[in-house]
Structures are given as structure tokens and as C-alpha cells.
Design a binder for these strands. Structure first.
Length: 161
DNA sequence: GCCAACGTTGGC
DNA sequence: GCCAACGTTGGC
């Protein structure tokens, strides 16, 4: 008899992307609306991908470093991790000459865009009491991937209607 | 363009 | 292992 793995409850994440590089529109226009999440160069964010994110997890697609920063769409984790090839590409802005070819430092996973939303900006997010602890709203937050609590996800779904 | 916050680097 | 210097992020 085979032990059937009990799927863990869905988790939720916020992933930042500069829309000039890959906007929610760009992701939706990609084949199968799926894009490889290249360029993560922070160990904590990498470890989230490697250790905690699973196919099917919900993703808030966040636009950063742009005129209207905020949540701009919904997506899902669409693959497990694999080597991020941009770390070995000298022409890439994400090139990491210190990453050993036989032991790559950096990983990526696929993200499948589901839909574009209205932009929910930081000011609006800060108004919601359930979001007071949200990682992306904390002072000095710089992580490009952060966990989102179920209560926070629910509040944002409600804001989106 | 400013600047606060944070992670990384590297000398010691 | 400490910690100052430096580079990057990212909202404003």
C-alpha cells in the first residue's frame, strides 16, 4: 500500500517585478502565460523558492520601481526550481561571475500569470487593518519574494472584489 | 535625484 | 568573527 502524500495547504507569496522588465501584461502575453522568474540574487528569496514554494501556490504579482507601485495581477507558482541560466551569461544584468558552474548559486521557477488586476498601491494596502503586518509594507523591506499570510491574501482578494 | 535601509564584501 | 565601506533597492 502506498502512502498518499497529503498536499499541504496552499501558501501565498508576493513577487516583485519591475514592469519595464516584465509586467503583468508581459507575463500574460508569454506562451502559456508563463515566465521563468530570472534574476533572484538574494539568498533569502532563493531559499523561499527552493524550500517553501510549491506548484499551485498563489502569487501577488507586484510592480516595483515604477510610477505606480503595487499589486498589479494574480499568478501561481507553476514549477519547481531549476538553475537560473542568466547567472552564467556575461551579457545578462544578472550575470554572477562568482557562481560556480558545477554548483550554481541561483535558481528560478516558473510563474504563470492568471489575470491582471487594478493596481492596489501601497497607500491603499496600508489602510487595511489586516495588512498591518504584511511584509512588503514593513519599513526597509527589500526582499523581492515574501510570504503572504492567508488572512492577508483574503483581504486583498476582497479589495479586488 | 534623494536617501534610508539593508545585504555583501573584504581587511584585519 | 568583527565591522566599516560599499552597492543596491525602491518609494517618494
Amino acid at each position: 500500500m502506498t502512502a498518499s502524500a497529503t498536499p499541504r495547504p496552499a501558501r501565498y507569496w508576493l513577487m516583485k517585478s519591475e514592469p519595464e522588465e516584465c509586467s503583468i501584461d508581459d507575463a500574460l502575453a508569454a506562451p502559456n502565460a508563463t515566465v521563468p522568474w530570472t534574476g533572484v540574487r538574494n539568498y533569502q528569496a532563493r531559499n523561499f523558492m527552493r524550500d517553501d514554494m510549491q506548484v499551485g501556490d498563489g502569487v501577488l504579482f507586484y510592480h516595483s520601481s515604477c510610477p505606480e507601485p503595487g499589486i498589479a495581477g494574480l499568478a501561481r507558482v507553476a514549477s519547481g526550481t531549476r538553475t537560473d541560466p542568466t547567472q552564467f551569461d556575461p551579457a545578462s544584468p544578472y550575470y554572477d561571475p562568482k557562481s560556480p558552474a558545477d554548483k550554481p548559486r541561483w535558481l528560478l521557477l516558473d510563474v504563470q500569470a492568471q489575470r491582471k488586476t487594478r493596481v492596489v498601491g501601497l497607500a491603499e494596502l496600508r489602510e487595511h487593518p489586516d495588512l498591518a503586518q504584511m511584509r512588503v509594507l514593513q519599513r526597509g523591506n527589500r526582499l523581492s519574494i515574501t510570504p503572504v499570510e492567508p488572512v492577508e491574501w483574503a483581504a486583498i482578494m476582497e479589495m479586488l472584489g
